[in-house]
Simulated assay, not measured.
Amino acid sequence: MPDLDLIGAEVLGPEGLHPGRLSLADGLVVEDAVGRPVDLRGYRVLPGIVDLHGDGFERHLAPRRGAMKQVAEGLIAAEAELSANGITTGVLAQFISWEGGLRGLEFGDKVLSAIRDTAPDLVTDLRAQLRFETHLLELYGDLPQRIADWGLTYVVFNDHLPHDRLAEGRRPPRLVGQALKAGRNPDAHFAQMLALHGRSGDVPAALDRLCGVLAGQGVTMGSHDDRHPETRDEWHRRGVHVAEFPETVDAAEAARARGDAVVLGAPNVVRGGSHNGNASALDLIAMGFCDALASDYHYPSPRRAALLLEGSGLLDLAGAWALVSSGPARVLGLADRGELSPGKRADLVILEARTGRVAATMSGGRFGYLSGAVADRFMG
């Protein structure tokens, strides 16, 4: 891209929107005017969205319940969707779980390797997050090396076993469908779940050791769906300092009290509450228990959530947009993005001022998405 001076638009800074020039050179925001002016009256220029947890890409890799053989093609399609929704840094959350199939080790290895190999050729900064089920003890020994080989810097721990039912020897709901999706006999699938539940007593000490190794590798670690303050305290002690989607106010408050980052789901904000009865993201934001909003399963939601928060009066635009830009950048340790200031990456989204729709997205000073009338401004 040539050096550009974006003029006439409202630009979002820490103090809010202001009319002014935004200059871009060599993929960075710069102080002085540098190149061809582009008149963006009628638009708003905001920092690019940093999405630190999304699994909406799965539909591109496994359409109609069948995995694509060319995973890279699915990632290219997913990148287009991310960019069209203003996301300039996208963290793709891939399971490795006892559930098997598209969440098993074999498919997970294929996806994580493809992200590593494909991302350097894309405009959007695509990264991977491993979502790892805690009871897969047989994988612990090799996991640190696998994580290094995949080039990962972010791991989140899950425990999705229905322990209450398994403790009673009862089959959980949807077991048959889950087993068939993984290509397993339902009886064998249930037996595996019971065996995993039976080793629960060995998991805490194994996690202590694993988290110590990963911390030494510089891996950012998070826990998923915390319900109790005691659980969050235990994760904090292990060096797991990100609380993803805490299910209760008490768990979110415990994370805040320990100085840990709280990540909430943007769809929860857009819906006005959790789809499964957990704590409302709106309530947690109002209490100050939120550092970042993530797309979770719906890439349009971060932008929509930030604009909704502004429109509701709960936060001003700068505060609301920080939850999808500078906030998640800090959680990921990415000091080079998240705000439009000199020296930062030229990661930005251009919104129609009247509608709030995405008109263009730039990552590292390169267009990932350019649509409609705004294209004429740049091409003229």
Rank of each mutant, 00 (worst) to 15 (best):
residue 355 T to G: 02
residue 349 V to A: 01
residue 321 W to H: 05
residue 328 P to C: 13
residue 361 T to I: 05
residue 328 P to F: 12
residue 327 G to T: 12
residue 357 R to C: 03
residue 361 T to K: 12
residue 329 A to V: 08
residue 335 A to V: 05
residue 335 A to K: 00
residue 345 R to M: 12
residue 325 S to E: 12
residue 363 S to Y: 14
residue 361 T to W: 05
residue 350 I to H: 01
residue 338 G to C: 13
residue 365 G to K: 09
residue 333 G to D: 09
residue 341 S to K: 03
residue 314 L to R: 11
residue 360 A to P: 07
residue 349 V to L: 06
residue 316 D to E: 03
residue 335 A to G: 05
residue 359 A to E: 05
residue 343 G to S: 15
residue 313 G to V: 13
residue 348 L to N: 01
residue 350 I to L: 15
residue 341 S to T: 15
residue 353 A to Q: 03
residue 335 A to I: 11
residue 364 G to V: 06
residue 319 G to E: 08
residue 359 A to I: 06
residue 338 G to D: 00
residue 334 L to K: 12
residue 325 S to K: 00
residue 349 V to T: 15
residue 346 A to Q: 10
residue 316 D to S: 06
residue 333 G to K: 01
residue 359 A to S: 11
residue 342 P to R: 10
residue 357 R to V: 08
residue 359 A to C: 03
residue 330 R to N: 05
residue 341 S to C: 08
residue 368 G to P: 13
residue 322 A to M: 03
residue 323 L to C: 07
residue 333 G to M: 11
residue 339 E to N: 10
residue 344 K to F: 14
residue 341 S to E: 15
residue 318 A to L: 04
residue 344 K to T: 14
residue 345 R to N: 13
residue 362 M to A: 12
residue 330 R to P: 07
residue 338 G to S: 09
residue 366 R to N: 13
residue 352 E to Y: 02
residue 345 R to S: 12
residue 353 A to W: 08
residue 315 L to D: 11
residue 312 S to F: 01
residue 319 G to H: 12
residue 339 E to V: 12
residue 335 A to F: 02
residue 330 R to S: 14
residue 342 P to M: 01
residue 354 R to Y: 01
residue 328 P to S: 15
residue 355 T to F: 05
residue 317 L to I: 06
residue 328 P to A: 15
residue 345 R to W: 14
residue 365 G to P: 13
residue 313 G to T: 06
residue 331 V to R: 07
residue 334 L to F: 11
residue 342 P to Q: 04
residue 364 G to F: 09
residue 348 L to K: 13
residue 324 V to K: 00
residue 354 R to T: 09
residue 365 G to A: 06
residue 363 S to E: 05
residue 326 S to R: 14
residue 351 L to A: 02
residue 342 P to L: 04
residue 325 S to T: 03
residue 351 L to Q: 00
residue 337 R to D: 10
residue 333 G to Y: 04
residue 365 G to R: 07
residue 350 I to D: 12
residue 320 A to G: 03
residue 350 I to S: 10
residue 358 V to I: 09
residue 324 V to F: 06
residue 361 T to Y: 09
residue 355 T to E: 00
residue 337 R to N: 09
residue 328 P to V: 08
residue 324 V to Q: 03
residue 351 L to Y: 01
residue 367 F to P: 09
residue 323 L to A: 00
residue 312 S to N: 13
residue 342 P to E: 14
